Simulated scan of single mutants.
Amino acid sequence: MSTSLSARPVLPPTVWLARGRHTGATPDAELRHTLHWLKAGQDIDDFLELPAPDTAPDLVFESRTRVADEVTVRARLSLAPATDAGRDWVLVAEAEQPWNPSWPSPAGMFWPSGTDAEWNADPVTGLRTGVINPLPEDDKAVRRLLRDCARDAWHIHVVVHEAMTTDERGRVPLARWLPPGLRDRVVEHRATPQQSRVANWALREFGVEVPRGGAAVLPGSPAPEGYDADAFAVRAVFLDGTEPVDLVEAVARYDALPRALPDGARDALTALREEWHLLTTAEELARERALVAMYAEALEAMTKSRDLYREAAERAHEALAAYRESAGSPGPGQPPAPRAPSPLTRTLERLKARRPAPEDPAAPDH
């Protein structure tokens, strides 16, 4: 399997990305309610809803908070128009320092928490993060699903195979053990004991095999640099309610690999960086000072260009006057000097003078 990121831009280490689908009726109202509640509880510093631009019908929300007491995180969520399946959203957040998975999920800067949330569906599969998603019973549906998951670059898809039917202790989602910054980006799939063969048949084109009673982290497309299917396959996952240490470690290692920006993420990141509106007073002042400095620099460059142009014009006029003087050209209002005949003209005139006159054919013979 190729591990090249090709020419696609790589996800910066300061950036956290996620996308999802809200399957409820009023996601915009839910966002506004949650943002007001979070600000009132000082879980976020501030938020802003931007008017939808004419060129894009999405709603846009900005939120700012601090993690680890001092690191500012800016986040931007765009909510797409409604479809029959729900409303898709894209969230991009950037911190002042490289992202630490132990920090709270930026999704919590916009959406309410809870297992009954309607906002955390994966747009590709319709499955949800933070819960156990059993594989379909139909073999063809399993193949289609896992192939789609193996190509998904937005989420981390993990397939866990149950060596035997689990009891209540074994039905604890992987998300419970993951650091907060990963929980909203991991989709967990569970294969029953008899689904081992069909799962591996669906994944063999990606070079991935799920060990019996183990798990595998799927590669995404393009696969991150350094991804090796064997390195991200866990030989045994004990579904007895204890922490699956090896699997958690494999997911964390996968998340730390350099990854290409997924399709659509580049525009979202550019919008966060270049169209940010939620500024503090100090940031507003700094931006105004930067604008003043930029305008002063532009004015200085224009003035310098004007002076250089004027100097060049004066030199051109001086050069033209000197040329006219050296060539004997008359000044303004003076008649042009008679032009001396060229050597060729003088030679032709001498030859013409020496040539005898032609005889008159009508003259009488003597």
Rank of each mutant, 00 (worst) to 15 (best):
P9V: 08
V10N: 08
L17D: 03
P27G: 06
D28Y: 06
L35Y: 04
K39N: 05
I44E: 03
D45A: 11
D46V: 04
L48T: 05
L48Y: 09
L50C: 06
D54Q: 15
P57W: 05
R64W: 00
R66I: 02
V67S: 00
D69P: 00
V73Y: 00
L77K: 02
L79G: 07
A82I: 08
G86Y: 09
D88F: 06
N100M: 04
P101D: 07
W103N: 03
A121E: 10
V124I: 14
T125F: 10
L127F: 14
V142G: 08
R147N: 07
C149H: 00
R151K: 11
D152F: 07
H155G: 02
H157L: 04
V160A: 02
H161N: 12
E168G: 07
E168R: 14
R169N: 13
V172Y: 03
V172Q: 13
R176I: 07
R185D: 01
H189S: 05
R190Y: 04
R190A: 13
V198G: 02
W201G: 11
L203N: 03
G207R: 03
R212S: 10
G213I: 08
V217Y: 00
P219Y: 00
P222I: 03
A229K: 02
A233V: 07
V237E: 01
G241P: 08
G241N: 05
V245W: 05
L257Y: 05
P258T: 10
L261P: 11
L261D: 11
R266W: 09
L272M: 05
L279P: 00
E283T: 02
E284N: 07
R287W: 09
E288T: 09
M294C: 10
Y295D: 15
E297N: 12
A298I: 08
M302T: 09
D307A: 15
E314K: 15
H317Y: 08
E318G: 12
L320A: 14
Y323I: 08
A327S: 11
P330G: 06
P335I: 08
R339E: 12
A340W: 10
P341E: 05
P341L: 04
L348M: 10
L351A: 13
R355P: 01
R355N: 10
E359Y: 13
A362R: 15
